[in-house]
């Protein structure tokens, strides 16, 4: 069996009486897209927060690239190669699309404590950012401040910033949210290619996209994993149909 890139084991997190994450274990192995689905309030955001390092689990461990990262900060996990996109676009609003990507690129190249060399004349950095923007089809919008980009462009820029980290795994939180059919179609084929570069843990509401992309699907309801398996298995799992698709079996 292949060594997983990311392993969650027995994660638990409660807010008061609410068990937002209730003994969740899952793995992400190289080359796969592992989709995490579940109805609203299932605890997907809390789980993503724990993987990214924003929320500390009450118990359980997170192993990333063979290291226990449970105690590491968000920044440390990112530098280890965890590239994420946010559910609601989270960019540097005054920076252009290019500078947003450059920011991600520069931190991959090492610490930010370089005080004097101008970034704007750093040809390597600029060319690198331009190449990544080209990959997501945004080369023409490089100098637009991210606050002025369209919703779809902001979603793409999120992914471009994750790409710039050259991560060992992608953590994509509803990348299709709010995109038109055409945009979703493009993104589906993009992610299809992307998984060869690094495996993807995909949280997504668009079921067509999930069924088209996922190699494995895990279903989260009330903080618990109720099913995990291939697309076909999940499609026909009666518990999933009942709990998630609202379809009494």
């Amino acid at each position: 069996m292949v060594e997983p890139v990311l392993t969650l084991s027995h994660l638990k997190k409660s807010f008061g009486a609410l068990k937002a994450t209730d003994d969740v274990s899952l793995t992400l192995i190289p080359g796969e897209i592992h989709a995490l689905i579940g109805p609203n309030g299932a605890g997907k955001s809390t789980l993503i927060g724990q993987i990214a390092g924003k929320i500390a689990p009450d118990s359980g461990t997170i192993t990333f690239r063979g290291r226990d990262v449970t105690q590491l900060s968000t920044a440390q996990r990112a530098r280890l190669g965890l590239g994420r996109s946010f559910q609601i676009s989270s960019l540097i609003p005054e920076f252009s699309a290019r500078r947003n990507v450059m920011l991600a690129l520069q931190s991959r190249q090492g610490h930010p404590f370089r005080f004097l060399k101008p970034v704007q004349r750093d040809r390597g950095l600029i060319a690198g950012a331009q190449a990544i923007l080209t990959r997501v089809g945004m080369e023409g919008r490089a100098s637009v401040p991210s606050a002025e980009l369209s919703h779809g462009e902001r979603r793409l820029l999120e992914i471009a910033m994750a790409l710039a980290l050259e991560p060992a795994c992608f953590l994509l939180d509803e990348p299709m949210a709010g995109m038109g059919t055409e945009g979703v179609g493009k993104l589906v084929s993009f992610l299809q290619d992307l998984k060869a570069q690094a495996p993807i843990l995909l949280v997504e509401h668009d079921m067509d996209a999930v069924f088209a992309l996922a190699d494995r699907i895990t279903v989260l309801v009330y903080g618990q994993i109720i099913a995990s398996g291939s697309v076909e298995e999940i499609r026909h799992d009666p518990r999933v149909r009942e709990a998630y698709l609202g379809d009494p079996a």
Partner: peptide, 20 residues
């Protein structure tokens, strides 16, 4: 500089800065 870019980014969006 790179430091300045990081600093300005943190002012605008610390969570995003940490995520990269």
């Amino acid at each position: 500089s790179r430091f300045g870019a990081a600093l300005m980014a943190i002012r605008q969006n610390p969570e995003r800065a940490a995520a990269v």
